[in-house]
Design a protein around this nucleic acid. Structure first.
Lengths: 225, 225
DNA sequence: CTCCGCTTCAAACGTATGTTTCAAACAGAC
DNA sequence: GTCTGTTTGAAACATACGTTTGAAGCGGAG
């Protein structure tokens, strides 16, 4: 075992446990016993628990970041000059996420769940790490969104982007649980790809909704469609 | 201090700390030192940390639950017989949340943030507690949503409700931070009411979006409006 | 005043955590 | 085979946690 697969075994176990239990709720002892390595191995190879968390994210986020950049490249090339539509931009993002080569079949779920946790759990060190490592693709995505929705004021766009992020992060961070609930209620199996296929139209429609109301709807029933 | 305000001081401190740091990341010692009470007071008055978490939720969820029920009562009465529209239903919910009497000006943010955390952090005991204590208003809201969107399949509706919950919980849970960012960038002040006024059209539009796509959009640019 | 139930307090308990230590095991170069 | 740098191993470390203990303090009733 040349460059010692200990590192990978730790990353695999950590990834899985973090995804299903969160960061604070996952101890190094859980990780090392699942990975069947010695407890001290984590601190030897990574330095600290926080550094391990960063390594887990870097392992899947770096390839994803690269995939995303080329997806955006292709998209902009196909549109030569014209800015891509909102729908195309959102789709390029989800496609890149869904098409990522996975280590196993739960790969995408874990990927999504970790992203959701990163956004949700207010681990300061993690947010800082992600911001300074992956600001470029994020900034590019924001620029594409802006060009795809020129009709929105920047304030409207700002809030609606937050709404999109929220819907996505939240859904994906509990996608496993939500799929299980649906499975129990209706017997229907759902893939992450299908969730994404449902999410994109929802986001695009919300993003392009008519202007915000400044007053509550009147007493009488009003149609909104 | 008749019935000892210790209980309330603990609840106030716990509420605030839970909202800004999460449950596992908030220790009883942080809470008791912020509340300026003895460490043992928590276990004396509440029994355990988990019971304290439940009490924090019960304190704001029970009045909210009542407010919401009457809001739904009024709405259904006004519509006599006809099911309320999606827009009206969503508005009744946000109105109830926004109009709740608050202990202080950050009340709504804390309220939303806690709901978001409850949804996100996989604290099994909390989910169980909320389900068996507040299933009625939740179920009623779901029923109203169902009647307001008869054109949706139940599976579509299920997922879109999750998307709505995500956008709402996420945005509201970080509404403080998001408002500050916008304030710094543009100098614009934003009230929670305004955020809600922007959120409702977004949600309604997403909820009523055209069907999910089962295939990626074609190479050529497609319009989505 | 004395008593009694309720509340507070300082201290300790047992357990779990992240991290460190240092000796043993190992692998490849000479 | 021997040496050398790297990796593993069992054990301990210091710290933080939730919880428990038992004594002290308190306020109203008799």
């Amino acid at each position: 075992m040349a460059q010692s697969d200990t590192v990978d075994r730790i990353l695999d176990a950590a990834e899985e446990l973090f995804a299903e239990r969160g960061f604070s709720e996952t101890s190094l002892r859980m990780i090392t016993s699942k990975a069947k390595v010695n407890l001290a191995a984590v601190n030897y190879h990574f330095g600290s628990k926080n550094a391990l968390i960063h390594a887990v994210f870097a392992r899947f986020l770096s390839p994803f970041s690269a995939t995303l950049e080329t997806a955006f490249d292709n998209l902009e090339e196909r549109c030569d000059g014209q800015p891509p539509t909102l729908y195309q931009t959102l789709w390029a993002l989800t496609e890149s996420a869904v098409r990522m080569p996975q280590r196993n079949d739960r790969g995408i779920s874990i990927f999504m769940r970790l992203l959701g946790l990163a956004y949700t759990q207010s681990q300061g060190h993690l947010r800082k790490f992600l911001e300074q490592e992956y600001s470029q693709p994020f900034g590019r995505f924001m620029r594409l969104l802006k060009e795809a929705t020129p009709e929105l004021s920047s304030v409207d766009r700002y809030w609606r982007i937050q709404f999109m992020l929220g819907a996505t992060a939240f859904t994906m961070s509990s996608s496993d649980a939500l799929r299980d609930i649906l499975q129990n209620k209706t017997g229907i199996e759902t893939s992450v790809q299908e969730i994404a296929a449902r999410l994109v139209p929802f986001l695009a429609a919300g993003m392009q909704a008519p202007d915000k109301l400044l007053v509550p709807p009147p007493e009488s029933k009003v149609s909104v469609a």
